[in-house]
């Protein structure tokens, strides 16, 4: 079987309220489903694999050929848990290790 290729997105969440990893994950799923439907959610299967509640930085994993779909759905997020928020993609990488290294530096 062909190995699945992932892309990792380093994002920063702008919000004045407290945000959890689960709320970020569910908002991302909702937006992706709203824009592209269930099929793309199954194909891309995005997941928040790292979230720092203090700095509000997160790493999102998705399929390598659906990066534009995930970016578009992240751009449309204006609220998380009914509080104003925005998500900005800072960097995209093929490994989560390099993004964690980038965060440490």
């Amino acid at each position: 079987m062909k190995r699945r290729i992932w892309r990792y997105l380093l994002v920063i969440v702008l919000s004045n309220e407290r945000i959890t990893k689960d709320s970020l994950n569910s908002t991302l799923f909702q937006n992706l489903r709203y824009l592209y439907g269930e099929q793309i959610v199954v194909k891309t299967w995005p997941k928040v694999i790292y979230f720092n509640p203090k700095s509000k930085e997160a790493i999102i994993r998705c399929s390598h050929n659906a990066i534009n779909e995930v970016r578009a759905s992240l751009a449309l997020i204006t609220k998380i848990n009914d509080h104003t928020a925005a998500i900005h993609v800072i960097r995209v990488s093929g490994t989560s290790k390099s993004l964690k290294g980038f965060l440490e530096n």
Binding site: I67, N68, A75
Partner: peptide, 15 residues
């Protein structure tokens, strides 16, 4: 809060 990264805007353009 309303600013978006240019690549994100491009992704919306593709959409």
């Amino acid at each position: 809060f309303m600013m978006r990264s240019p690549r994100d805007m491009a992704a919306l353009g593709i959409f």
